[in-house]
Design a protein around this nucleic acid. Structure first.
Length: 799
RNA sequence: GCCCAGAUGGCGGAAUUGGUAGACGCGCGGGAUUCAAAAUCCCGUUCUCGCAAGAGAGUGAGGGUUCGAUUCCCUCUCUGGGCACCA
């Protein structure tokens, strides 16, 4: 058998594709457009890993399939090239981030080209280049102009010994990744985007073809809750504490109030009092807890202190103490009413000896917290609750809110747990925030004519305690020259998520120099028809991109509200069931396998491993099965054979077209490959003609583009297979004349019979009864029920 | 602790709407070819018993609905992922 020399054949076709500009997209074509997008990679210095291949190869197969189905497929690729690794590398090696980044981009581009995917490299973006980030800055200015950007103080992770801000990733378990010393919090004035303004719009996924799981995750992340604010006046009348709660039904059980440590009232209450020392010490302790520690379950971790104040419960006039507690967050109003019907409150009260009482029980009879080890959190009937006693607590909820409103003690409110988006980074390798400060310290946007607001190059990367840009002389001189003496630039850069929240708008417009994108072009090409990327981006990138897109839409820059019509997440490739990681030393490098078997075999094995959205487990030996299949496939295509049963061949081929099309449509590449293997196994016995061969190579073209192109050319075709049409099947040839059915007696299969597809119930049952092993069991009793589901099953129930 | 997803042969996985569980591939066993090996091809391969026909068990565990459950319902165990105690 002729063996298939993958490396020679694959490089031959890649060269032809490049030379003929096969994948260059005419954005003005009249063919139906299809925007097929994968989340762009960070250009690391390492080689492409299995995860990249697992993501990009099937995405490319999908694009090729859509192309053969007659679409004008736009499949761009770019680089999300700002970020921490390049900066860390610069700190270590002294190499400027732009130098290492551009080198990595070139390297990665070459590797991606070797993959044989149909990227149109004329339309690519590199987010760290001025011709891109000037427009990220433009996005900032747009939001700033619409009052969607603001500045406020927020804490960052700080390592005192390294004199630097740390990312969460660098500050795991409360210690600095670089020097192991304790991480503290430091308050800095930082820029935010008002993503909360779009909370309600972001909750609406109605027109999106997204995984349910992702929609659910976003909804939980945005966390809309409908509740009410309740006012508690201080005993001395000096202040009103407004508590947000979704459970006003527990109001009569409230015996204390807790305030978030971050709340400004904490200082106001304790300053100059006997409580000041203890409260401030406790607050320090809480601030040094990670969010996880602060939020972990179990009574031990409850921390807090009395603030020396008492408030009046508006429902019953009782005097209740006011505490600060670690589990109270600056969510809602930052003040929480506390009672025995909440487990955290219950534990806190026990630790700090605060009295508790219940107002809900199963049947409305009085119960006492002294008899309980934990909070009573079930629903039930109210007691000791004034006019609401005797009501079901859930039914009482709206009535109590109305009652609070009538008595001016509270009001219905809606809360979202989504926080505004903090975009300031005290880093060098990012897009400078285009803001300058006048001598009085007031911020002003950098006018558009000065974009790109260039990232200065005369900086020191080693940590000095401030943002690296602060050290640039050129940056200050530039600012003073343009704006006047005493003016200073903002020295923070933007979160890289800002750059990646609008890149899909730029791809169709990469050549435009005086605008980020053209409304007409983007309105034609967007939204993205298919977006493929990891599920880890469900709540960050995918929410940010939707927000930016919506904001730009509302400003009239684009005509569509949602950026991504359909979304698919790829699964993870594991090795022996474990996540691949450098530290475990179980990382599989694609290179040796590609060298040995070629990229078609490699990508088909990744697809064969398991369903695309589930991921799969890598096995070094498993890939040989695909390599054997490719050899056999090429043999079937290139060697003459005699057809033994042409009817059977036509049937098998039409079934294959149907199966492969359906499997690709639902991203089940694994069963698609299996079906192809079955067909090839059949053809090895039965033989195949040239017309059928031409169908077969087109069917495998999306999955194994080089192999298919070679086969297509061997079969005498001159044009690229990717300019051919996807085969259609004949519905008549897909249906079988006969079918083999199992025959069950009392639910157990006792035999099988082959009958015509349209056999009547009467005949089918008669044929089944004739089966000797079936009749044996039928004789054991009386047949009380007969079942015939055409095409599925024949059954008898015997008693 | 909460939320989401999952658990099927020795392994990866298949079963599209409740209808013959284990497609396809790996591995393994046997055979052909070969001086020999590799490669390739053929046969077998869920487990137990049996020469076979067949019988029994079987989709994490236990229960339920049904003529029939990997699939639907309840309880539990374990694994993976996410988390910002959301009051």
């Amino acid at each position: 058998m002729a063996s298939y020399d993958a490396s020679e054949i694959e490089s031959k076709w890649r060269k032809k594709w490049t030379d003929s500009k096969l994948y260059e997209v005419d954005l003005n074509s009249d063919k139906p457009k299809y925007y097929n997008l994968v989340m762009f990679p960070y250009p690391s210095g390492d080689k492409l890993h299995v995860g990249h291949w697992y993501n990009y190869a099937p995405a490319d197969s999908w694009g090729r399939y859509m192309r053969m189905k007659g679409h004008n497929v736009f499949q761009p690729m770019g680089f999300d090239s700002f970020g921490l690794p390049a900066e860390n590398y610069a700190i270590k090696s002294g190499v400027h981030p732009r130098e290492s980044t551009l080198k990595n981009v070139e390297h990665m581009k070459k590797q991606l080209s070797d993959m044989g995917a149909m990227y149109d490299w004329d339309k690519s973006v590199t987010t760290s280049e001025p011709d891109y980030y000037r427009w990220s800055q433009w996005v900032f200015l747009q939001l700033y102009g619409k009052d969607l950007a603001y500045k406020k103080t927020a804490p960052v992770n700080w390592c005192d010994s390294c004199q630097t801000v740390l990312a969460n990733e660098q500050a795991q378990d409360g210690t600095c990744e670089r020097c192991d010393s304790e991480v503290t919090k430091k308050d800095l004035a930082q820029w935010f985007f008002k993503i909360r303004d779009y909370a309600e719009d972001l909750l609406n996924h109605d027109d999106l073809d997204w995984p349910e799981k992702t929609v659910l995750m976003q909804k939980n992340w945005i966390g809309k809750s409908e509740g009410c604010d309740i006012d508690f006046k201080l005993e001395d009348g000096s202040e009103t504490l407004t508590c947000y709660t979704t459970r006003p039904d527990t109001l009569f059980s409230v015996t204390f109030i807790v305030v978030a440590p971050e709340h400004p009232l904490v200082d106001k209450f304790v300053e100059g009092t006997e409580y000041e020392d203890e409260v401030k010490k406790m607050r320090e302790k809480i601030y040094n807890q990670t969010d996880i520690e602060r939020t972990s379950e179990g009574g031990k971790d409850k921390l807090g202190a009395f603030l020396g104040k008492y408030a009046i419960n508006p429902a019953n006039g009782e005097k209740v103490p006011v505490y600060m507690a670690n589990f109270a967050l600056m969510y809602g109003t930052g003040v929480v009413m506390a009672d025995a019907h909440d487990q955290r409150d219950f534990e806190f009260a026990h630790k700090y000896d605060i009295p508790l009482k219940f107002v809900i029980s199963e049947d409305g009879k009085e119960i006492d917290p002294k008899d309980f080890d934990e909070a009573y959190v079930e629903d039930g009937m109210l007691f000791n609750s004034g006019e609401f006693s005797g009501m079901n607590n859930r039914e009482a909820l709206p009535k109590m809110i109305k009652w609070l409103e009538e008595n001016k003690n509270g009001r219905a409110t809606i809360n979202y747990r989504l926080r505004d988006w903090l975009i300031s980074r005290q880093r060098y390798w990012g897009a400078p925030i285009p803001v300058v400060y006048d001598p009085e310290g007031n911020p002003h946007p950098v006018p558009e004519e000065h974009l790109p607001w260039m990232l200065p190059t005369d900086v020191e990367f080693k940590p000095t305690g401030e943002s690296p840009l602060a050290a640039s002389k050129e940056f200050i001189e530039r600012t003073e020259k343009i704006f006047g003496k005493g003016w200073r630039p903002e020295v923070d850069t933007m979160d890289t998520f800002v750059c990646s929240s609008w890149y899909y708008l730029r791809y169709p417009c990469t050549t435009m120099e005086d605008m980020p994108f053209d409304k007409k072009v983007d309105d034609k090409w967007l939204p993205v028809d298919m977006y493929i990327g990891g599920p880890e981006h469900a709540c960050m990138h995918l929410l940010y991109a939707r927000f930016i897109n919506m904001a730009l839409h509302d400003m009239g820059h684009i005509g569509f509200k949602e950026p991504f019509k359909k979304l698919v997440h790829q699964g993870m490739v594991t090795k022996d069931g474990a996540k691949m990681s450098k530290s475990k030393g179980n990382v599989v490098s694609p290179d040796e396998f590609i060298e040995k078997y070629g990229s078609d075999v490699f990508r088909m094995y990744l697809m064969f491993m398991g369903p695309f959205t589930d991921g799969g487990d890598w096995n070094d030996k498993g890939i040989t099965g695909i390599a054997r299949f490719v050899d056999r496939f090429f043999g079937v295509v290139s060697e003459k054979s005699e057809v033994k049963d042409s009817k059977a061949l036509a049937k098998a081929l039409n079934k294959l077209i149907k199966k492969v099309s359906a499997d690709i449509e639902r991203f089940q590449f694994n069963t698609c490959v299996a079906a192809m293997m079955e067909f090839v196994n059949f053809v090895m016995k039965n033989g195949i003609d040239d017309e059928s061969r031409k169908v077969l190579v087109r069917l495998i073209a999306p999955l194994a583009p080089h192999l298919a192109e070679e086969g297509w050319s061997v079969l005498g075709e001159k044009d690229s297979i990717f300019n051919s049409q996807w085969p259609e099947y004949d519905e008549k040839l897909v249906v079988d004349d006969t079918v083999v059915l199992g025959v069950q007696v009392n639910g157990k299969v006792r035999g099988e019979v082959e009958i015509g597809v349209h056999t009547s119930q009467e005949n089918a049952l008669e044929i089944a009864r004739l089966n000797p092993n079936v009749s044996k069991y039928l004789e054991e009793g009386k047949v009380v029920k007969e079942i015939y589901v055409p095409g599925k099953i024949i059954g008898f129930v015997v008693k």
